[in-house]
């Protein structure tokens, strides 16, 4: 195990996969000479050259198509889209092109590429650089969507995503890059599609992903001081969703709070809530509660932004309400 930052864990995974498989290439804005705005691609261009590590124009549609086309002819591109907010520019290529190829072409081609991007509020980046659009991509059959919370999962899931024969949307969080954690040595792979119980508990299940997992774990400590023993399920993958781990936890605790940093209405929490109703209704002692970002464009000013987006305190309050319901 080595202690490292989330950004370093991603960087290490990219270095290792590019060294292991010469088909892997990295493309995106600022990824080459500058090493990425969050330094995730640091050192790649120097080590692997400017053919395999390409700085691109600010042309998100074309770059998404570029990743699709290159994957179609045997490359394994890792595309960085600097902010998840810019994913809207990529949506035709992702939704109308990438997602349909395997199924509609009846298996004639696979598209092994990764679209890395980062979202989330908390940095004062305002309405066009702070969103969490998980639900938008998790809605689409044919895409895989992962959202690691820890450096170990960031590294292991990125390796799995690069080796996966399908398009994977890899959701990072801008406030996680500087968090630290232990990362296993060697060929560390975290399988896509497996959630895990980040904290065991008996009184309530809190389902979360990405940064919300860390906030849920902090909330669980506060709740523990009040005598509430919360279990935290870290999804790690949003699509395909590990329904089994969620259901197993809720059947044990009989209470469920789902947390997602995206907007509440039509958000990923709604999906989680429906899944729990379908899989564990008879075990519930009260209604599933969901917590998401307020249904407003994310405002800039600090008190407004803090009020809009869930944090540990909001999760703590929501957990208490869930148990009272």
């Amino acid at each position: 195990m080595t202690r490292m930052r989330y950004a370093e864990a991603l960087n290490r995974a990219l270095h290792e996969e590019m060294a292991r498989d010469e088909r892997v290439c990295v493309i995106g804005e600022d990824v080459g000479i500058y090493g990425g705005v969050f330094k995730v691609t640091k050192g790649l261009r120097e080590r692997f050259g400017d053919l395999r590590v390409r700085d691109t124009p600010i042309s998100e549609q074309a770059m998404t198509g570029l990743a699709i086309g290159a994957a179609m002819v045997g490359r394994r591109p890792v595309l960085e889209i600097m902010y998840i907010d810019f994913l809207t520019l990529c949506l035709d290529q992702l939704v109308n092109q990438a997602s349909i190829v395997h199924y509609i072409w009846a298996g004639q081609a696979s598209l092994p590429f990764v679209l890395r991007t980062q979202g989330g509020a908390g940095a004062g980046a305002a309405a066009q650089h702070s969103k969490s659009l998980d639900a938008l991509v998790a809605h689409v059959p044919g895409l895989k969507v992962v959202a690691p919370a820890t450096p170990a999962d960031a590294s292991g899931l990125l390796v799995a995503a690069i080796r996966d024969p399908n398009p994977v949307v890899f959701l990072e969080h801008k406030l996680l890059y500087n968090t630290t954690g232990e990362v296993p040595e060697g060929d560390h792979v975290v399988p896509i599609g497996q959630a895990h119980v980040a904290r065991e508990g008996t009184d309530i299940t809190i389902v979360a992903s990405s940064k919300m997992t860390l906030d849920a774990l902090a909330a669980a400590e506060t709740l523990a001081a009040e005598g509430i023993d919360a279990e935290v399920v870290d999804l790690r993958t949003l699509r395909p969703l590990d329904r089994e781990t969620i259901a197993r936890s809720v059947r044990k605790t009989n209470r469920a709070l789902v947390v997602n940093e995206g907007w509440t209405t039509g958000g990923f929490g709604a999906e989680l809530s429906a899944v729990i109703m379908e899989d564990a209704f008879d075990w519930l002692d009260g209604p599933v509660r969901r917590l998401g970002t307020a249904d407003r464009p994310i405002p800039y000013s600090l008190p407004l932004e803090q009020a809009a987006v869930p944090d540990a305190a909001a999760i703590t309050r929501a957990a208490r309400l869930t148990l009272a319901g």
Binding site: C25, L51, R52, Q61, A62, M63, T64, G65, L66, A67, I68, G69, A70, A71, M72, V73, G74, R75, P77, Q93, Q97
Partner: peptide, 13 residues
Amino acid sequence: PIALGQAFGFQLD
């Protein structure tokens, strides 16, 4: 843009 990516793959190859 998909053809662009195919051409990029061929150039790398």
